[in-house]
Amino acid sequence: MPVSLNYIFKRIILSILVVIGVIVFSYILLLYTPGDPAVKWAGNPRGPEARKAIEMARRELGLDQPIHVQIAQFIYHVFTGNLGLSIAYKVPVSQVITSGFTATLELLVFAYLLAVPLGLWLGIYSALRRGSRFDSFIQSLSVVLASMPTFWLGAIIALISYSTTGFLPYGRVSYKLAASTGFNPITGFYLLDALIQGNYAVFLDALLRIIPPALAISVYPIGVVARVSRTLVAEALLEDYVRTAVAWGVRRNTIIKHFVLKSIIPPVIQISGLAFVYSIVDAMVVESLVFGREGLGSILLDSLHKADFRVTIALAIYLTIFYILVNTIVDIIQASIDPRVKI
């Protein structure tokens, strides 16, 4: 069913409400869980500077003001990206979060650029050869792969990489190499930065390190997209318009390319979007604990260990915002390529 414009509009309104809901909820959590909110916001400081830090946190939050003012202020801070200094990293929270997002997004986008076309191809190919050995192999494989914990698969991939080539894909880039070649990340997407600067050694290094975790992450979307596109192709092959086109003498390849594929692209985009938001968590787990890459995962773990409350809360809020943003964008893309929806 095509997504209507009206629906997207409602969606956006709702999304804003959801985001505000999460922000308010975070703030209430800060206020009403055991302990002084100012102390928590200051990150349980110790030592001589503690009093000052707590006072500053109290002022930042405006704890002496009525609750609705505090909340409004907090929402304002969230939307302006102004949540103060991170306790653990000593840089603005927004900067910490941004760097985390770029790192994790680079990995995710890389994985999805790999996964969606591959899944689509597998799904279509096995649908067109239904019942063949290739089809049943892909079917069984996708069931097994979908049952694997991503982090476990990541560990196995790392192990295979290490035992066959002796290369351990750890971190985002070799810092020695980066320092010696004067690599200077600007956008935070290392692959992109290295290409722009023409630093091919770093590019290759970053590429080799991103492929194993991306492979682990891509298994889930490959399976999902392959499964869904196989069913969609099957359904499309039964459509009246395909039958009619056959009767008109349209060739098989034309039918597949122009009649079948065009109809499955919008739902495939939608399902990829759903999978994408699911994969964010996957990526956070895999990148930090298995592959030792900096990103949202490592920031989350760090902020928890170091009681960096601001970063934790900011992460939760911005993650939700991002989650909703992806969903909404996917809906809009889907609507804009479906001719049945007027833009």
């Binding site: 964010i280 939760a316 939700t320």
Partner: peptide, 22 residues
């Protein structure tokens, strides 16, 4: 339906984080 959409839009790791904090 609003509540449904609201909770669908929150990643479960975020909730886990909140609980972990409290």
């Amino acid at each position: 339906n609003y509540l449904t959409e609201l909770f669908m839009a929150i990643p479960s790791i975020v909730i886990a984080l909140f609980f972990r904090l409290t």
